[in-house]
Design a protein around this nucleic acid. Structure first.
Lengths: 232, 232
DNA sequence: TGAAATATCAATCCAAAGATGTAGGACAAA
DNA sequence: TTTGTCCTACATCTTTGGATTGATATTTCA
């Protein structure tokens, strides 16, 4: 399963030097793991990533100054294919969500058994994503809650549904920053006709100007709806 | 682990009547499961959910007409606490992502062993989210890719970074649909001053009018940036 | 068929938005 | 102290946007 080349090269970042040492010893016990670096500073850690190009980075996400999330983002931006596993003392849903959002391939609690950490490293090294089931539950709760608002905004009494097909076209062009002249040109109709449509849109959406119309459209899933007609 | 009250009440929706029958028999073999309904129609299924209020709904997501995703959304909107497990013949990342987004608590492939389906039902009934590891890998790939664009748009050569603090405030109010008068009132400055700021914003963002400025802001993570200052 | 909704275009008027130039005071950095 | 940036403010002018009314052709559907 693992690649032919020697050991899995691992870099550790944790501002708690005790924990750092502990993890280092733990990993060193594994014959197929090699710790290529260990530091208590996120900034230093990023430099070490550039220098040693490890396969895996284990980073604490609860650090002062440059925090671990920022470190994840910075490392991801290097685009070296480095796989990141977040370590944390807390099973905070928001923290997990943000770490995964930034590209972490795993998230392990410090309180978890060491075997779990080893397992996580193996899984992530094999190209998988590793989230202990307790944490994945939290993740999905958070994930679904954050989309619930979005979808509920999309239905309900949506004023957008009162628009005619032509008005939707016009609104679509408005949401692309066109003025009257631009819309008229693109739809091959006169500017005054566009004005008529736009005024009708304002009435239906109960707004006063184009900016508010565009904001209403964007906040009420207008783009999604139009995409839906093609993609769903 | 399971609650004291009798059996777990399950409803099945699958337009393939053969598969529907197969799953029904499979589940009926389990002494603690009870199939309270089985239908090949999504619309009918939703009505059955209202009528029987099952604990779990297993629904195919590859159906013609009213598709399974729509069914998931409709059932979720009833807010009966019904837990939904999506069934699909395909491990399509986009499909998995959308099903989970809409609130599905599990996703199981039809090709998977029956034991896995039973396990999924148990897990979901216990309040967990169940995604087989193959699928969760796909899910996270998709998830991270969809956020990669967002974050990369947020840095790079972002014209927003040239704005002064005051200009950011003004732009923020613009993205809320305010006109000159509204902004002036909220910032306790004169309308002409607001005009000056807005004009400077246009220059810096290289746009021609407020709508384009608002769109630029929204498309380049302006809201995220502002939120970041508080929340990150 | 006949009513209702839709799409088109025009004229007019007023308000709002945008462009440009100028300028004083606060403040920080060189 | 000087230089530069930022925030403030005003005047002026042009352009664009928005409201209103009215009109005609086409489509939709009961």
């Amino acid at each position: 399963m693992r690649e032919f080349r020697g050991k899995l090269r691992i870099l550790l970042i944790d501002d708690n030097s005790d924990h750092l040492r502990g993890v280092k010893e733990l990993i060193s016990l594994e014959s197929n793991f090699e710790v290529v670096g260990a530091t208590t500073s996120a900034n230093l850690g990023i430099n070490l990533v550039k220098k040693y190009r490890p396969d895996i980075v284990l980073t604490d996400v609860n650090m002062p100054e440059k925090d671990g999330l920022q470190a994840i983002q910075d490392i991801e931006r290097l685009e070296l294919g480095t796989k990141i596993i977040a370590l944390s003392g807390y099973d905070d849903a928001d923290l997990i969500f943000r770490a995964m959002k930034l590209g972490a391939k795993g998230y392990v609690l410090k309180t978890m058994a060491s075997a779990q950490l080893i397992h996580a490293i193996d899984e992530v090294a094999a190209g998988k994503v590793y989230l202990p089931s307790v944490l994945s539950s939290r993740f999905f709760d958070y994930f679904q809650r954050s989309f619930k608002e979005e979808t509920s905004a999309m239905d309900a009494e949506n004023l957008l549904s009162y628009l005619t097909a032509r008005e939707e076209e016009v609104l679509d062009l408005l949401t692309q920053g066109n003025n009257y002249k631009g819309i008229a040109g693109k739809l091959f109709i006169s500017e005054t006709t566009v004005k008529t449509h736009v005024n009708n849109i304002f009435q239906k959406l109960q707004v006063n100007d184009r900016t508010q119309a565009v904001l209403y459209a964007l906040n009420n899933g207008f783009a999604n709806k139009r995409r839906a007609k093609l993609a769903v």
